[in-house]
């Protein structure tokens, strides 16, 4: 079974949910303590949600300096698969491993509610098993989730296919522009998730690990985690990683 590491920072609070989510998606989940210097042989790494180190200063700003993040950065540089969810996305953005920044929500309040998102492309390690399912319904729970980058960067992200998910209205068809209630935090160009230019590191604000079972109201998050586990399994095979990166970059 494919080993997926889930980083545990002090203050992570979605680590247990993410470990179980990986198991639901068919992977073998292992905890990676924040002081760990290596990734324990994981074929992929997930940074879970929470308030790493308390996040009193700014979300993710301290976590990026933790020992495990050095190992994550090295892993990413080698083409290893990394996914950041919520606070994990904030940490990746602070560390410069994905483009852009997460600002305070437009309404300046913490928001916990279900949102709808739609994938921009289905040929990535994070979206390959989503199929025709959309919109995807899953919860958000954050105070700093407003995606921001300058116009040139946003243009480049769109041109290069690095926008992974956007907030959409419940009909699924129309993008939720800034100011639309369906875009809960005022993210520019309704961006809910992005990936790096190499296509092996991605972050999103909504919580797929909280939408993995019908009893919880939605299992739309499961295909995202299953995509990740399957892609990580492929990356484990000889030359798999090179194939993967080639597939991901347009």
């Amino acid at each position: 079974m494919t080993r997926i590491g889930v980083v545990v920072f002090p203050g992570s609070n979605c680590d247990r949910d993410t470990l179980r989510g990986v198991e639901l998606a068919g992977g073998e989940a292992v905890e990676l303590w924040h002081e760990a210097g290596s990734l324990d042989g994981g074929a992929g790494v997930i940074l879970p949600g929470g308030f790493a180190y308390g996040d009193y200063l700014r979300a993710g700003v301290i976590a990026r300096f933790s020992p495990v993040m050095r190992a994550v950065a090295a892993f990413a540089a080698e083409g290893g698969l990394v996914l950041g969810i919520c606070n994990g996305f904030q940490v990746l953005a602070e560390a410069g491993l994905v483009p852009g920044a997460l600002l305070r929500n437009r309404g300046l309040r913490f928001l916990g509610r279900d949102v709808r998102i739609a994938p921009e492309r289905l040929d990535t390690p994070f979206t390959r098993l989503i199929g025709a399912r959309r919109p995807l319904r899953m919860p958000i729970a954050h105070g700093e989730g407003c995606y921001f980058a300058d116009d040139a960067t946003l243009d480049a992200l769109e041109r290069d296919g690095q926008v992974l998910f956007r907030y959409v209205r419940s009909d699924g068809g129309s993008t939720a522009e800034t100011g639309d209630p369906a875009n809960p935090n005022g993210s520019l160009r309704a961006i809910a998730g992005v990936m790096n230019d190499r296509g092996n590191v991605a972050g999103l604000m909504p919580h797929p690990e909280r939408a993995g079972e019908a009893i919880l109201g939605s299992d739309d998050g499961l295909p995202i985690l299953r995509s990740f586990v399957e892609a990580a399994a492929q990356a484990e095979r000889p030359d798999g990683r090179a194939d993967l990166a080639a597939a991901a970059v347009r």
Binding site: N13, C14, R16, D17, R20, G21, G49, R109, F110, L111, G112, R113, P139, A141, H207, E209, R210, G212, E213, I215, L216, G217
Partner: peptide
């Protein structure tokens, strides 16, 4: 009011 709280962490809220 309740939207300002996280009601779904722990992935067990039915």
């Amino acid at each position: 009011v309740y939207e300002q709280y996280d009601s779904t962490v722990q992935a067990s809220t039915v």
